[in-house]
Design a protein around this nucleic acid. Structure first.
Lengths: 231, 231
DNA sequence: TTATGAATTATGTATAGACATATTAGGCGA
DNA sequence: TCGCCTAATATGTCTATACATAATTCATAA
């Protein structure tokens, strides 16, 4: 049998991760949870404290307990937000949409993402101070993120938009070095064969896939930084 | 003023991170800590529970509380252990020492590591099934790891040895793509200009620097995998 | 009208006590 | 000697209570 405080914690965490509770929403007061689960305040507190320390919720005296906004800082390599990183170092950021297509999943890669559902396929370029920095090819699972269909990605990059809108629970990055080729080399204004940093990333919310993206960076102009503290 | 339970937790965590308490050592029983800090058992328990959940200690009824062994699995990109990864995928691993030097720190990079103390400078090659996979240049701070002086690195790679011997608390990785050049290209048997994956890593124990390493991988043969769960 | 201060409210920390559970040590009988 | 039962022991969970702290509301006084 699971301890009471852990059941309460899991319930709330699931509501947040599933999206039933959105950032900014208020979680019931401790005395409300006491009544709801028929437990003492110490037990409710023991359930909420780890969620607070884990950064999932925010607690304010007199005001109550609220769902936190997803953390967007991350020097750490969880999900690099290119737009954020470029503006953070004082350069001007711009995203240019190269292609846009909405269709049923019809390749292995697309079916891995969306089963037999619909997929949004985009390509685009990230600019830092008018210089092309990264070429990106992205697939978005429209089952998981239906709102994506009505967003204008000529104005904002899909990665930046997704980070703010969809909470993710799991990411996998594959990082490799590859020579610049064909269209990608042209877009990045690099000679064929120039060393590029390639990041292939897949994200999940729970067991549901959200997006698949390949980003190709000019190897000389960009480096990933991953910083870790031992748990 | 810091809460009591946090002071107790910090004290114990510091003793573990500094090496004063080693893996396997027993931490005082709850009733001993009660007396030592003049607090109730709930407070001691509140101090120890997060250390348990964080994997730093292990608690067994009747037996007591013990310092955990450091986790060495890590699909995650904390500290990739090349030897471990190669053998894990069924290939034969070999390390070849190319150069070995022991001297006082005399470059900026070496002084950043060891101040005015002594440094062990190594270069070597990692082989996967007789094929060179990575070239590595490593500096070890002998103030932090004096035992390194008496280890035979022709037989085992310094990275693998360090992981087992020295507990680290913090790592910073910089990952970039660069063309193969000069000696490095020769050692890896690559043409000049081939895309390589370069990892620059610095590790700390507390505020003390342990090692600095640059690893250059054949971009086509190696990829880093970084997998994350949202906290 | 504005500044001040007191009451209210929700969380933060800590206590003492109680019972539960897992594990081990020791004693007892076959 | 071996197996089994029971004691003892350390951690696990939970309650009821108390006082502290931060933030807000609201009444009161200048």
């Amino acid at each position: 049998m699971k301890p009471l405080h852990q059941k309460i914690r899991d319930d709330i965490e699931n509501q947040i991760r599933s999206g039933a509770l959105k950032p900014g929403d208020r979680i019931p007061f401790e005395h409300e949870l006491m009544a709801q689960y028929s437990v003492s305040r110490m037990t409710v507190n023991k359930a909420l404290t780890p969620l607070d320390e884990g950064g999932l919720i925010e607690r304010r005296k007199r005001a109550g307990t609220f769902v936190r906004l997803p953390r967007l800082d991350s020097t750490v390599l969880d999900i690099p937000d290119i737009q954020h990183e470029i503006t953070a170092r004082g350069e001007v950021y711009r995203f240019e949409l190269l292609s846009y297509a909405l269709h049923k999943a019809n390749s292995d890669e697309e079916r891995e993402l969306a089963g037999s559902g619909k997929v949004l396929a985009l390509t685009g370029l990230h600019f830092a101070s008018a210089k092309p920095l990264a070429f990106e090819r992205r697939l978005i699972n429209l089952e998981a993120v239906p709102q994506a269909e009505s967003v204008d990605f000529t104005r904002q990059s899909p990665g930046h938009w997704l980070l703010g809108v969809v909470p993710w629970t799991h990411v996998e990055n594959q990082i490799s070095a590859q020579p610049a080729e064909g269209q990608t080399a042209l877009h990045l204004r690099l000679d064929e064969g120039t060393a590029c940093l390639v990041v292939d990333r897949r994200t999940w919310r729970g067991t549901e896939r959200i997006t698949t993206v390949r980003q190709v960076f000019d190897g000389g102009a960009y480096r990933l930084i991953a910083s870790f503290d031992q748990r």
